[in-house]
């Protein structure tokens, strides 16, 4: 798992790459909480490089979503790989998150 961030216009784009399984999710959670504490209003999570996600990983996505809803901010996910999209669909998470096919579309929101 590799997490990087970049400021594009008014949005903070986080890019996550690799696998987000149970063993990696603790480190991922720490990084995310640190970023959330900075109080960004618009966060886009670019998942083009994410090729596996466990339920622990999904939980962290939920943490971001709830936190952003709490401060009236905006959180969206983009570029999900088909297998990951399937996980989102099956677990009903695609109903919870704002999901975009690519970063451009996500930035326009």
């Amino acid at each position: 798992m590799k997490l990087s961030k970049e400021k594009l216009n008014d949005a903070l784009v986080l890019t996550v790459e690799g696998r987000l399984d149970t063993t990696q999710s603790d480190a991922f959670e720490k990084d995310i909480i640190q970023i959330l504490d900075e109080g960004e209003q618009k966060i886009i999570l670019d998942c083009s490089g994410l090729n596996y996600i466990s339920s622990s990983g999904l939980r962290i996505f939920l943490i971001i979503q709830k936190k952003m809803m709490g401060i009236g901010g905006q959180f969206s996910i983009c570029s999900l790989q088909p297998a990951i999209m399937e996980v989102f669909d099956m677990s009903g998470f695609s109903m919870i998150f704002s999901i975009h096919p690519d970063l451009e579309t996500a930035l326009k929101q």
């Binding site: 669909d89 677990s91 009903g92 109903m95």
Partner: peptide
């Protein structure tokens, strides 16, 4: 039909 896991909302 789609629905989300328990414990979220």
């Amino acid at each position: 039909s789609k629905s989300i896991p328990l414990g979220l909302f």
